[in-house]
Write a protein that binds this DNA or RNA. Structure first.
Length: 870
RNA sequence: GCGGGUGUGGCGGAACUGGUAGACGCGACGGACUCAAAAUCCGUUUCUGGUGACAGAGUGUCGGUUCGAGUCCGACCACCCGCACCA
């Protein structure tokens, strides 16, 4: 059989052009079919993509194409997360404009994505740096402001004193500015915040409804939100001067350990600390020392507990001894009330602190089965459950009961004119600071007036556009030093005022873009009807690195938009999938310089050497593809040598999609062989059954066997793709190809092909092509055409499976003797267990094993297995 | 430190709610076709012993539940990820 090779390089652009010309991936909102919204996290236009970026787009594309075949009206859009710092860096380094750089990158990357043959509706493409998009975002900001979801307060930033600029956290390396190398300072600036904490409980509860999210991501969000239940306890200050407050409020989740308290500690940022420090240079110096303490994780981890005794004392609320008040470096201002009581016997941090400063360590919780006479915490605190002792009225109570007893008691005690204790729910989640002292972002639509304060930009003046005439030759924010941009009159009183020069965190841009895709091109960016039609996204696909921030912010955004009546859904993403990365070996030459994969070849002995020079090359472990390590594969090279269908097939095969997958030349060659094999199988089938045949009434056994395999394939792959188990789907296609290939060999040997077999062969070919169409769409079109099928494979329906062909009438049961497999037996599918038992006992292996004795027991699991216990 | 996950041939990995471990692919080896090569096709490929039919062992380690465990339970080891002084 001679069939010409499938020429991907020629076919792929041809079919892409046809798809494009016929606009078959354009989605209409008035299409009456049920909707399905597939979305891959949109990319940042950083320059060029490599093949590693392609994996999630290909996965999403398989889902999109599959769902179209299943009869859904599919929305599968693409856009650009186009604001952000790299554009400003590029502007500085290349003396270009961030917008120009960004749009050039978008053009390049759009072409690269198109090369992959993705079934995207490009008519809905957006870039977040488009004034139409960010103008709507400014409108949303003002609505949030009106609704009480935005506020302004002082907050610390990283300040580079040499470059005179604010640094993002990732620009601070070992406490120094990444560009200047100067020691970074903490400075307070007035900044805008989204009140995400107001929705903390809702966002937590909502996780329970997201049953198509990975448990891992839900857990990460749950921990991030960090709900805890505890008590606010007000401690009365004993010997405080008149100008100080009368009390200190602490938050605790362990009120049961109150009798074990030996000190109170304030955060260095606590208002009382600041008041005290104002009159106490030694304390002021201590606070300063705490503040200098590094911000990096390693530094915090190793930082020693430090305290400063204020000399103040507080009264114990339950009548215990008075407690000293310290300022301590390990107490966070941002969590709880910024003040704690320390119980060294039952908390590691308090234990460390008390040990260092010689404070009493009194155990009050006795572990189960411990002897109160001998139990000691000298070696370390006990943080587990147990029974209270050394605790007066709490003695003998279990920890939860003791918590309850203290809460009940303190709620009724009064200090001043309020209860001493108050039950509180606390969250780790902080409000979302969105102010960025940057140019390339969405301007915050506010005008600052000396008389009126911050005033919203009036609706008819939106969008507040970024000025184009900016320079990056000096440090700092170009918006701030622009000669005219920020000087405007106050919309309220008309007096000269200043624009807000901060722009929004780019996480704001990505918190609603999926809603923008819902409205048709050329219409308002956020339309309720359109958003309600399409949201939530049915299948969202992206990297695990966005498990918390992007996904949590988007959830917050959609919930808030719902409260403001802009959308009707509460959750943006009904289904979430986090795909693994593509990794690749790394190569270094003798001087330790990184090499591109195409610069490396194998010499006669199979040793890796540098192309041309033959010098030896060291191969490093597979790592995430990255420009800096040069272990990248450009999509163009793959497309030219093998075709993108091979790349798509490779990215779906073998490795489960949630795991990292290694790109290898052997792997892509295997994909290439299989793509050719499908083409050959279809050609061979057509050679044997050139004419379209009507469905015969009866089928011979070979035809039935082949049809069974084909129908089973369609049913199984459907199930696999629904569950995003692409690697398993690929394996099933391979298996079927083996069965199909055998059937073709047999048919060729058999001489004339009868009508029933001809039908079965053509059907098998059509099923195979349809089933692989979502994965290798160009090849599928080519096969579809030679099969003479109507229309495009991209518009075909998923094969209709005949249930009768899936049902087997006999079943092969393995026979175990004492749990070891010793044979098998073929029985009718619905054979009665008694019948099976009788047949099994007659088997040679069984009679030999029993040797005349009666079996102790026989377990017959219908349609599964038989186990004879001898 | 806390939380979560993973561990199966030379490699990537299959195995539905406890029921034939190793599907499928890669690699390797042998063979066919060919003047030769490429391509393609066929066969073998968990380990150990045996020419062989076959026997034994085997899913990180140790133990348990069960007629039966990769799957469930307990303890441990290794690696990966997230959070990290959150009171």
């Amino acid at each position: 059989m001679t069939t010409e090779r499938y020429n991907a390089r020629e076919a792929e652009p041809r079919w892409q052009k046809i798809w494009d010309e016929r606009g078959i991936f354009r989605t209409r909102n008035d299409d009456p079919r049920p909707k399905y919204y597939v979305l891959e996290m949109f990319p940042y236009p950083s320059g060029r993509i490599h093949i590693g970026h392609g994996r999630n787009y290909v996965m999403g594309d398989v889902v999109a194409r599959f769902k179209r075949m299943k009869g859904f009206n599919v929305l599968h859009p693409m856009g650009w997360d186009a604001f952000g710092l790299p554009a400003e860096n590029a502007a500085i380094e290349r003396k270009t404009h961030p917008g120009k750089w960004t749009y050039e990158n978008i053009a390049t990357m759009r072409d690269q994505l198109k090369l992959l043959g993705l079934s995207l509706d490009w008519s809905r493409e957006i870039a977040t740096c488009d004034p139409e998009y960010y103008g709507e975002q400014q409108r949303i900001f003002l609505e949030f402001l009106k609704g009480g979801f935005v506020y302004r307060r002082e907050s610390e930033v990283n300040w580079d004193p040499v470059d005179n600029t604010v640094l993002a956290n990732e620009q601070v390396i070992d406490g120094r500015g990444w560009r200047s190398g100067a020691l970074v300072e903490r400075r307070k600036l007035a900044q805008w915040f989204f009140r995400i904490t107001a929705l903390a409980q809702e966002l937590l509860d909502g996780l329970d409804t997201l049953d198509r999210w990975p448990d891992k991501v839900r857990l990460m969000q749950r921990n991030w939100i960090g709900r805890s239940e505890g008590l606010h306890v007000r401690f009365a200050l004993e010997n405080a001067p008149a100008d100080l407050p009368r009390e200190i409020k602490v938050y605790t989740t362990r009120p049961d350990t109150l009798f074990g308290a030996s000190f109170l500690a304030l955060s260095p940022g606590h208002p009382l600390t600041e008041t005290l420090a104002a009159g106490n240079p030694a304390l002021a110096a201590f606070v300063e020392e705490c503040r200098r303490g590094g911000t990096s994780t390693a530094e915090i981890e190793t930082q020693e507990k430090m305290g400063f005794d204020t000399g103040l004392k507080v009264r114990h609320p339950l009548g215990g001894p008075d407690l000293p008040v310290y300022v301590a470096n390990f107490v966070l201002m941002e969590y709880g009330t910024g003040a704690i009581f320390g119980c060294p016997a039952h908390d590691q941090r308090d234990f460390d602190f008390a040990s260092k400063y010689g404070l009493p360590i009194t155990p009050v919780v006795l572990p189960p089965d411990a002897d109160p006479a001998t139990f000691s915490v000298a070696d370390g605190p006990y943080e587990g459950d147990g029974t209270l002792y050394n605790s007066r009225f709490l003695d003998g109570l279990a920890v939860p009961e003791a918590k309850e007893a203290v809460a009940a008691r303190l709620e009724n005690d009064v200090l001043g004119n309020a209860p001493v204790g108050e039950r509180t729910v606390n969250f780790r989640l902080r409000d979302w600071g969105i102010s960025r002292q940057r140019y390339w972002g969405c301007p915050i639509p506010i005008i600052h007036c000396d008389a009126c304060g911050p005033v919203p930009v009036p609706e008819d003046q939106l969008p507040v556009r970024l000025p184009d005439d900016v320079t990056f030759d000096q440090p700092g924010n170009p918006l701030d030093r622009h000669p005219t941009w920020k000087h405007v009159d106050c919309p309220q009183c008309g007096a000269p005022a200043r624009r807000e020069t901060d722009t929004m965190d780019t996480f704001v841009d990505s918190s609603w873009y999926f809603a923008r895709f819902a409205s048709e091109p050329g219409t308002a960016p956020l339309q309720k009807a359109a958003a309600d039609k399409w949201l939530p996204v049915d299948q969202y696909i992206g990297g695990i690195e966005h498990a918390i921030l992007h996904l949590l912010y988007s959830r917050f955004f959609i919930r808030t938009l719902k409260k403001l009546g802009r959308v009707s859904v509460e959750e943006p993403f009904a289904g979430l999938f986090t795909q693994g990365m593509i990794v690749h070996e790394t190569y270094k030459d003798a001087e330790g310089r990184w090499l591109f994969p195409e610069e490396v070849e194998r010499d006669a002995e199979g040793q890796p050497v540098k192309v041309g020079t033959g010098e030896p090359v060291t191969i490093g472990a597979p790592e995430k593809m990255s420009k800096s390590k040069k272990n990248v594969v450009p999509p163009e090279i793959v497309a030219d040598t093998y075709g993108v269908d091979c790349a798509r097939w490779f990215m779906l095969a073998d490795t489960p999609p949630e795991r990292d997958s290694e790109w290898t030349s052997a792997g892509i060659e295997g994909a290439w062989r299989f793509v050719q094999r499908i083409w050959r199988l279809v050609g061979d089938a057509l050679a044997l059954a050139p004419e379209d045949v009507a469905r015969p009434a009866d089928f011979g056994s070979e035809s039935i066997a082949l049809r069974r395999a084909a129908h089973k394939l369609a049913a199984q792959v459907e199930d696999d793709v629904e569950r995003l188990r692409f690697n398993v789907a690929v394996a099933r296609v391979h298996s079927f190809a083996n069965v199909f290939g055998d059937a073709l060999v047999a048919a060729r040997k058999g001489g004339d092909v009868p009508a029933d077999l001809a039908f079965a062969l053509r059907e098998a070919a059509a099923f195979l092509v349809a089933v692989v169409a979502p994965m290798v769409p160009h090849l599928a079109e080519e096969c579809w055409q030679v099969l003479g099928a109507a229309g495009l494979a991209a518009e075909a329906r998923w094969p209709a499976v005949e249930p009768a062909l899936l049902a087997e009438d006999t079943v092969t049961l393995p026979i175990q003797i004492n749990g070891k497999r010793r044979g098998e037996i073929v029985v009718p599918k619905d054979a009665a267990p008694g019948e099976v038992e009788k047949a099994v006992l007659a088997l040679d292996v069984v009679t030999q094993a029993l040797d005349g004795r009666a079996p102790k027991r026989i377990i017959v699991v219908p349609q599964r297995i038989v186990n004879v216990v001898a």
